[in-house]
Design a protein around this nucleic acid. Structure first.
Lengths: 113, 113
DNA sequence: AAAATAGGTTAGCGTTTGCTAACCTATTCA
DNA sequence: TGAATAGGTTAGCAAACGCTAACCTATTTT
């Protein structure tokens, strides 16, 4: 797996991250929000930990999981930069289209879009 | 599949989207940037189209694929709102931690973090 | 010390995914 | 018209995924 965006692609893991957004929680607390087993949650947490998104603090027999702020920020930045280029391109493209509503460049430019 | 974030979780599809960010491209043009077959690309494009991220304009025997600006914006908004809550929480948490460097709330609050 | 609790680990399973190969249709070129 | 080209569709396969059940360790409770 090994890829941040891939890891948070999974809905269950996304939900885990959202739950942890509210503060640290134990594995059992997290599990109580799902229908799948504690083992499944444990495995999802392992993946999330492998990409650095979460880590745990152990206290007695509990393990409190929490988000890693740096990883969250890194992911957000990664996503922003990924999209900004495309959005910019799309916007200038839209502008160009509005400006030159006439003059199709060649025969295949003349259909609906 | 049916989930925007899940669909762009895949690295190949992410690359497709990035390529299309620069402007519309045919299936063959897209395929030339990958090592996998045209059929594989076609199937990825189908998924991207199913979540509304891309669509095609046909011109002769070519099909020019392009991003759907609205879907791109929707996805970005979706992502932003997803993270903003968490980031806010993390930041106020960090602030709280800095303010009250003393007084661990209970015995298990006293370890490293 | 024994019982209970939290949670990590692993084998094994059914399902899903991504891919290729092969085929088919529509369009263009000679 | 026949050959070539663009690309959608499908069957089938191997690999990856997500999950459960079972087991194991560490810690706490009685």
């Amino acid at each position: 797996m090994a890829d941040l965006l891939e890891v948070i692609g999974d809905p269950q893991r996304r939900r885990l991250v959202q739950l942890l957004g509210a503060g640290e929680l134990t594995v059992n607390q997290l599990t109580s929000h799902f229908t799948v087993s504690r083992s499944a949650i444990s495995q999802h947490l392992l993946l999330l930990a492998q990409v650095g998104l979460v880590s745990a603090r152990k206290a007695g027999r509990n393990r409190f999981y929490h988000l890693e702020p740096d990883a969250v920020k890194k992911l957000q930045a990664q996503f922003d930069s990924f999209w900004s280029a495309e959005l910019d391109a799309l916007e200038s493209e839209a502008n160009a289209l509005n400006k030159s509503r006439t003059r199709p460049t060649s025969k295949e430019t003349s259909n609906g879009f």
